[in-house]
Simulated scan of single mutants.
Amino acid sequence: MKVAADLDLCQGHQMCQFEAPDVFGLDEAEDKVVLLDATPPEELREQVVRAVKYCPAMALSMED
């Protein structure tokens, strides 16, 4: 699984951080998402799916 974030779309809502804190962080200076792990382990799949699904700005994507 590979995760990506579009920083042009990110609005800093931090929903991804709540759903998958081991994968997503926040750059407080930019108020944008930071990928902590662009290729998270399979056991975090459910968290990543929820983070992508619930991103209000639709700035996240994942592929297998």
Rank of each mutant, 00 (worst) to 15 (best):
S61L: 14
L35A: 01
D31R: 14
L44S: 12
Q14Y: 00
V23N: 01
Q11S: 04
V34R: 07
L7R: 05
E42Q: 06
G12T: 02
A20L: 05
P41R: 09
K2P: 09
E30C: 10
F24G: 00
A38R: 03
V48C: 08
P41S: 13
A5V: 08
Q11L: 12
V52D: 04
A51K: 07
A51G: 11
E43H: 13
A59R: 02
E19A: 06
D8G: 07
P56T: 08
H13F: 03
F24L: 09
G12W: 02
Q11G: 03
D22L: 14
D8Q: 12
E43P: 10
F18I: 13
K53T: 14
D37W: 03
K32S: 07
V34C: 09
D27N: 15
C16M: 02
V49K: 05
L7P: 02
G12V: 05
G25L: 11
K2N: 11
M62C: 12
D31V: 15
A57R: 06
H13V: 00
K32M: 04
F18N: 09
K32Q: 04
Q14F: 01
Y54F: 15
A29H: 08
L60Y: 01
L9H: 00
E19T: 00
A38E: 09
D64A: 14
L9M: 04
V49C: 06
E30G: 08
V34Q: 03
D64N: 12
V34E: 09
E46M: 05
E43Q: 12
L9T: 01
L9R: 03
E42W: 00
E63Y: 07
E19F: 03
E42T: 10
G25Y: 04
K32G: 08
M1N: 10
E43F: 11
A5C: 11
D6F: 14
D27Y: 12
A4T: 10
K32P: 06
F24M: 02
G12F: 07
G12I: 10
K2R: 13
F24S: 01
P56H: 10
A38W: 04
H13G: 01
A20D: 04
A57G: 05
G12M: 01
E46H: 00
P21H: 03
A20S: 08
M15L: 05
C16Y: 00
R45W: 11
V34P: 06
E30S: 08
D64Y: 12
E28F: 15
V33W: 02
Q14P: 03
L26G: 03
V52N: 05
C10Q: 03
D64K: 13
L35F: 02
T39W: 00
A51L: 14
V48W: 02
P40D: 04
A20V: 05
E28N: 14
E28V: 13
V49Q: 10
Q14S: 05
A5W: 04
A29L: 15
Q17D: 00
M1G: 09
P41F: 03
L7D: 00
P41N: 12
A5H: 03
Y54R: 10
L36I: 10
A20W: 01
V52P: 07
A29D: 14
A29I: 13
L36H: 05
D22Y: 11
D8R: 09
P21E: 08
M1K: 10
